[in-house]
Design a protein around this nucleic acid. Structure first.
Lengths: 225, 225
DNA sequence: TAGATTGTTAATCGATTAACAATC
DNA sequence: TAGATTGTTAATCGATTAACAATC
């Protein structure tokens, strides 16, 4: 095994796989907190998130040493540390482009504010939609993009049809947006330095179908988690 | 390196990471086909999907040898092989529970039929919603679940609020559903043999925020892909 | 034959798991 | 002290990448 110094880990940062699980831990902790639980353990977090307890401990150890041996983790303290690590101690402006069914549903979704994400603009290309009120905001025209994405850390969400997504993506990048969540069913082409994550129902269903098919063919094997 | 026989690979099946990319390749091929492209290469597929060309070749090799050295891949033939591997040569019945904004948006989304997924039922707990027409179907009551999930390979989609999701999940499983796509912001507890995939906007935004924060702190480093 | 591109090997890298010393 | 649980190590496993022989 190769030696990895503490400095090296800090340089490389928290592993991607760990970062992807931190929101789950945070949600479990928030739920515990709401139920009045003040202290927890890697076993309890494991049960709540479906992750192994050894992995919970390893993940949390990347944030520093926030537990107490023989005792566990303080729910509030650990929540704060995870939120800090994820960058949730500030507000993040969010802008949604594409006010079709999905865009409207997302805009109406309450989960943004809870996590420190603030809807700052809703946009659409269709002049018939521009000016309409949606979720307490007024839909803006695409020409307003440079002004609306003025905040340097704006997160862009694309909910347009697939054929419009690349053009919208280019416009977002031109306006300075470098973090994009893409719901359109296309792979976006972006320059280095732009971070795109995709959410795609068709892909998820296809993966479920694949696993289901595997299980039908070899019913004695357990499903992969 | 450990020896892995061809038999062993067939037993273990296609790696999860590969399965997750197959839908991207299929989509790129479908797009090529629509543009009249009849032949392609691992380089072209790599450019279209943002995956390295070596990985494209390795992924495709798990499906068998469907390319021609020095020539490339036949677009139609490769599409068929990927669709076959994913289990898309048949129709998959899909059932959505939770007819709020998101559930309605998903029901209205056209992408289901295209991929061989067929909406067979929409359900909601609210009596005021039951009976309403949505996307050409009539919303059913939860009591109809056992009958509606009668087909053994029904894929269940949960678009309820978080607090109702576990209960709905249990009901789906009791009705025989073993493949679930969860849009609710909770970790679902399921027995072995049930496959759950989750789609969560808040988690995705938190991961984007984390990366963005990292880049602000060390702007000289490129972003992870 | 010369050029192109696959399929596969081997090396590397990153993620997971099990075990246990440290320590409350 | 006895029991519990973390934080860390080492082993294992799986995924990615680079290189290139095979072959059209």
């Amino acid at each position: 095994m190769t030696e990895v110094s503490a400095t090296e880990i800090r340089r490389r940062g928290i592993p991607d796989a760990t970062v992807a699980r931190l929101p789950d831990y945070l949600r479990a902790l928030t739920s515990m907190s709401g139920r009045g639980v003040v202290s927890t353990s890697s076993e309890a977090l494991a049960a709540a998130t479906g992750v192994g307890s050894a992995m919970v401990r390893k993940d949390l150890s990347f944030l520093g040493s926030h537990g107490v041996r023989g005792v566990g983790y303080d729910v509030t303290h650990l929540s704060v540390e995870i939120a800090r690590a994820l960058g949730l101690t500030r507000d993040w402006p969010v802008l949604i482009v594409g006010m079709g069914n999905l865009g409207r549903a997302l805009a109406a979704y309450g989960g943004f504010a809870a996590g420190g994400f603030q809807l700052v603009a809703l946009m659409d290309r269709d002049p018939a939609v521009v000016g309409q009120p949606v979720a307490g905001l007024v839909v803006s025209a695409m020409t307003a993009l440079p002004a609306l994405a003025a905040a340097p850390d704006t997160l862009g969400v694309i909910t347009t049809p697939a054929h419009a997504a690349q053009e919208v993506c280019d416009a977002l990048i031109a306006a300075g947006v470098t973090s994009i969540l893409n719901f359109a069913a296309v792979t976006l082409n972006v320059p280095a330095g732009v971070d795109v994550r995709k959410v795609d129902v068709a892909t998820e269903l296809q993966i479920l179908a694949f696993h289901k098919q595997q299980r039908s063919r070899a019913p004695q094997l357990a499903v992969a988690p």
